[in-house]
Amino acid sequence: MTTSTNTRAALVTGGSGGIGQSVVERLAADGFAVGVHYSGNKTKADALVDKITTAGGQAIAVRGDVADEKAMADAFDAVEKAFGGVDVVVNTAGIMILSTITELDLADLDRMHRTNIRGTFVIAQQAAKRVRAGGAIINFSTSQTRLQHPTYAPYAASKAVVESLTLILARELRGKDITVNAVAPGPTATALFLDGKGQTTIDRLAGLAPLERLGTPDDIAETVAHLAGPARWINGQTIFPNGGIA
């Protein structure tokens, strides 16, 4: 694969579906060479890579558990080998398990913490060591850290850790010319979000925002693209693309 030395490269974890897929497509449209990370769905990742390369862009698929430091080191290695370096890391990978606190299965809590907390630390460590000057690290939180809706406590708690990690890492990278921010979407119309919800519930959630609709993956990708590109004076922040819910 031939890559221009002027090409900026991004690695997007959880890039094969949902918000991650929209982020990949937006960054590719903006001229990034993209590493499309997936954990289990190779078919979707490969299809997305084919779509990008057929359109004249550059992309590869990389696989691994985000909580496995060896697997993620290999993923970063693959992106560096293919594109010459890493300029932007977008960590959309995460899992959401809803439960009241009293009914929570602690095994589910541990599973969510492994991906959402340990996984974010693993990606942050690699990104802090590898992202080139002028680059960006973008983590994912949730507007539920502000909304406090019942059954979201386990998930929101894991994402509150992501916000704290993000703000501190931005300060630890002083002098590196690397921005570190978190994106915290509100209700967004992904297959995962819509699964199991009736139309009444969907309409109620859509009505929470003054704009009276759910967000779309493209809405979130637009925010990521801004942080990945021109937004060099936004650093150490959590951005809430949620239509004004909170």
Rank of each mutant, 00 (worst) to 15 (best):
G56N: 07
A59R: 06
I60C: 13
A61Q: 12
V62K: 10
V62C: 07
V62L: 09
D65Q: 11
K70E: 15
A73S: 13
D74F: 14
D74N: 14
A75S: 15
F76A: 08
D77P: 13
D77L: 05
V79S: 12
G84D: 02
G84S: 05
V86K: 09
V86P: 10
V89R: 12
V90Y: 10
V90G: 10
N91Q: 13
G94K: 10
G94Q: 11
M96Y: 11
I101V: 15
I101Q: 06
E103S: 14
L104G: 02
L104V: 02
D105M: 08
L106R: 14
L109P: 02
M112K: 01
M112G: 04
T115I: 12
T115R: 00
T115M: 03
T115C: 03
N116I: 08
I117R: 00
G119W: 04
T120Y: 08
F121T: 07
F121P: 02
F121A: 07
I123G: 00
I123P: 00
A124E: 01
Q125S: 07
Q126N: 05
A127R: 07
A128Q: 05
R132D: 00
A133P: 14
A136V: 05
S141E: 00
S143W: 07
Q144R: 06
T145H: 04
R146F: 12
L147D: 07
H149R: 13
H149Y: 13
P150E: 01
Y155K: 00
A156V: 03
S158L: 01
V161E: 09
E163F: 02
S164D: 05
S164E: 03
L169C: 08
K176M: 10
I178M: 13
T179D: 01
V180A: 05
A182L: 01
